[in-house]
Simulated scan of single mutants.
Amino acid sequence: MRNNHRLRWAAVPLAATLAVVLAGCTQAQLHGFLPGFENEGETAVTNQTDRIAGLWTTSWIVLLIVGLITWGLIIWTIVVYRRRKGQTGLPVQLRYNMPIEIFYTVVPLILVVGFFAFTVRDQIEIESRYATPDVTIEVQAKQWAWDFNYVNEDVFSPGIQAQDDPNGAPGSRIESKLPVLVLPVDKTIEIALESRDVIHSFWVIDFLYKKDVIPGKTNYMSVTPQRIGTYAGKCAELCGEYHSLMLFNVEVVSQADYETYIQSLRTAGNVGQLDNQFDRNQNQPGTSAPTAPEGN
């Protein structure tokens, strides 16, 4: 009874200390130092970033607790059961211990099932497509840049690969020449991803989400941007010699600025859609290979 009383009093300051430490954490620390959570009080970048960050951070907390328990038991065993001076021979051998065997079988099973269940729950939510999105974008990946079709507005924005900045630091790029995908804030967006050549991967870093772009297949991303700003994007799949130059920016803007940008594309003559006429994969499933002249 006395031991339980002591444990209770020991738990109170420990809980208070933990609460104070967590209260003093920044947004970046509370979200596992993931991108998009640098400043206090900011709206989440998209409708999914809090969910993704929560899954990531909670998983690491659970794994750290498991690691601390495991290392604690290892160190405790080394200290308590070490060979003392004057001892000889082998210690008492224990061949079976059913409670321990059940414990180290059941607990890992619970962890695996738990991680799987929470991951599937969040993945289903993230991968669900909008029935009637406000904006539909078609992204055409190519070595080594991105073209963007604004399907609803019937305009397009062609892109070139990143250009080195001769006046900047080594490895810096000319920002004004990067392909730009403009999205209206607080609108449901569906992005259809297609490739003209090899496998790419469409990654907007602060969205905490990426999706492979596979030749002959259309993948989809559904997202609602919630914070106005400019967010860096890149190809996350090694796709050839200039893979590192396959960069782009996503600009989340107000509805009025979005309409102004669409009008600027029309004024520039970028009316219509960039289709598969530039596709280099003529023999992919679902495409028609050129017909060879008879006799060749």
Rank of each mutant, 00 (worst) to 15 (best):
F115R: 05
A53L: 03
F103H: 11
I69K: 11
R82P: 01
W60H: 03
Q123G: 01
G114A: 10
F103T: 07
R129Y: 07
W56R: 14
Q87V: 02
E101T: 14
T57F: 05
T70I: 15
Y104N: 08
V62K: 01
I52H: 02
A117T: 08
L94E: 09
F115S: 01
L90Q: 04
R121M: 12
Q123F: 11
R84Q: 01
Q48V: 10
V66I: 09
I78Q: 12
W56I: 08
N97Y: 11
S128E: 06
Q87G: 00
E125P: 06
V92F: 12
V112Y: 02
T105F: 03
F118I: 00
V112G: 03
L63Y: 13
V92W: 09
V92M: 08
V113D: 06
V92K: 10
Y81A: 02
T88P: 01
L73R: 08
Q93R: 15
G54A: 12
V66L: 14
Q123K: 14
F103G: 05
R129W: 00
F115M: 02
L73N: 13
S59F: 08
Q87S: 05
V113C: 10
L94T: 14
L68K: 08
I124Q: 15
I100D: 05
F116Y: 12
K85C: 04
F118A: 06
K85Y: 04
S128G: 11
D122C: 06
I126V: 10
I75R: 01
Y81V: 01
T49G: 07
L109P: 02
L55F: 02
I110G: 00
P91C: 09
L55N: 03
F116C: 06
T119M: 08
V79I: 08
M98W: 09
S59I: 05
E127M: 06
V79W: 08
S59W: 06
Q87F: 04
V106L: 13
F116M: 14
R84G: 03
G54Y: 11
T88C: 00
M98V: 09
P108S: 10
I124E: 03
M98N: 14
L109H: 05
Q93C: 14
V107H: 01
N97Q: 03
K85S: 04
F115I: 07
N97M: 10
L90H: 05
G54E: 02
V79H: 10
I110R: 02
Y96C: 09
F116D: 07
L111S: 10
L109Y: 03
T105E: 04
F115H: 00
G54T: 15
P108I: 11
V92S: 06
T58E: 05
T105L: 09
W60G: 04
I102V: 15
T119V: 06
R51S: 14
V62M: 14
L109C: 12
I110V: 13
I126W: 03
I65C: 07
E125G: 13
L90G: 01
Q123W: 06
F118K: 10
L68I: 05
I100E: 11
I100W: 13
I74F: 15
R95F: 09
Y96T: 15
A53W: 01
V66W: 15
F116H: 07
Q48R: 12
F115W: 07
I69Y: 11
Q87T: 02
R82T: 08
G86T: 03
G72M: 12
P99V: 07
Q48K: 03
N97R: 07
D122A: 05
L73K: 04
R82G: 12
L68S: 09
I52P: 12
V107S: 00
L68C: 13
W76D: 11
R83K: 10
P108K: 08
V106T: 10
